[in-house]
Deep mutational scan, measured.
Amino acid sequence: GKMTGIVKWFNADKGFGFITPDDGSKDVFVHFSAIQNDGYKSLDEGQKVSFTIESGAKGPAAGNVTSL
């Protein structure tokens, strides 16, 4: 299901970062391709987001990332 969290950091040049889930679980990798907006796909440190957990090739990653 949907989770919420805070963006820990995001490197716009490399197109990835990490989200710290509100439930205290392990930080989740986020790739820019998972960001659900029409414009420039980037996130800001400290931004609140909702997301799902998808299993990627390198382990769990955030999917369906939407800013709240």
Rank of each mutant, 00 (worst) to 15 (best):
1 G>A: 13
1 G>D: 12
1 G>H: 09
2 K>H: 11
2 K>R: 10
3 M>E: 06
3 M>S: 11
3 M>Y: 10
3 M>D: 05
4 T>V: 14
5 G>Y: 01
6 I>T: 13
6 I>V: 15
6 I>M: 09
6 I>E: 05
7 V>G: 01
7 V>M: 03
8 K>M: 05
8 K>G: 03
8 K>W: 03
10 F>C: 02
12 A>W: 12
12 A>T: 15
13 D>P: 08
13 D>C: 05
14 K>W: 15
14 K>N: 04
14 K>M: 15
14 K>V: 07
14 K>E: 05
15 G>V: 02
16 F>T: 03
16 F>L: 05
16 F>H: 07
16 F>A: 02
17 G>M: 01
17 G>R: 00
17 G>V: 01
17 G>N: 00
18 F>A: 03
21 P>T: 06
21 P>Q: 04
21 P>R: 05
21 P>C: 04
22 D>A: 12
22 D>F: 12
23 D>L: 06
23 D>N: 14
23 D>T: 11
24 G>Y: 07
24 G>F: 14
25 S>M: 12
25 S>I: 07
25 S>L: 12
25 S>D: 08
26 K>N: 13
26 K>Y: 09
26 K>E: 14
27 D>P: 09
27 D>E: 14
29 F>M: 03
29 F>N: 02
29 F>A: 03
30 V>G: 00
30 V>S: 01
30 V>R: 00
31 H>S: 05
31 H>A: 05
31 H>I: 04
32 F>V: 11
33 S>V: 05
33 S>W: 07
33 S>N: 08
34 A>Q: 07
36 Q>G: 08
36 Q>T: 15
36 Q>M: 12
36 Q>D: 13
36 Q>Y: 08
36 Q>E: 10
36 Q>S: 07
37 N>F: 14
37 N>K: 10
38 D>H: 12
39 G>H: 08
39 G>M: 10
40 Y>G: 09
40 Y>M: 12
40 Y>W: 14
40 Y>V: 11
40 Y>L: 12
40 Y>N: 11
40 Y>F: 14
41 K>Y: 05
41 K>C: 05
41 K>S: 08
43 L>T: 02
43 L>K: 01
43 L>W: 06
44 D>G: 15
45 E>Y: 12
46 G>T: 03
46 G>C: 04
47 Q>G: 10
47 Q>H: 07
47 Q>M: 12
48 K>E: 07
48 K>P: 12
49 V>T: 02
49 V>M: 02
49 V>Y: 02
50 S>N: 10
50 S>W: 06
51 F>S: 00
51 F>W: 02
51 F>C: 02
53 I>K: 08
53 I>L: 12
53 I>H: 05
53 I>E: 03
54 E>K: 12
54 E>F: 09
54 E>C: 04
54 E>W: 08
55 S>M: 11
55 S>T: 14
56 G>V: 06
56 G>Y: 10
56 G>F: 13
56 G>Q: 12
56 G>H: 13
57 A>N: 08
57 A>V: 11
58 K>I: 14
58 K>R: 10
58 K>S: 13
59 G>H: 08
59 G>I: 05
59 G>E: 04
60 P>N: 08
60 P>H: 10
60 P>A: 08
60 P>K: 07
60 P>G: 05
61 A>E: 15
61 A>M: 12
61 A>Y: 14
61 A>K: 14
61 A>W: 08
62 A>Q: 01
62 A>H: 01
64 N>D: 14
64 N>H: 12
64 N>A: 08
65 V>A: 02
65 V>K: 01
67 S>Q: 12
68 L>R: 04
68 L>H: 10
68 L>E: 10
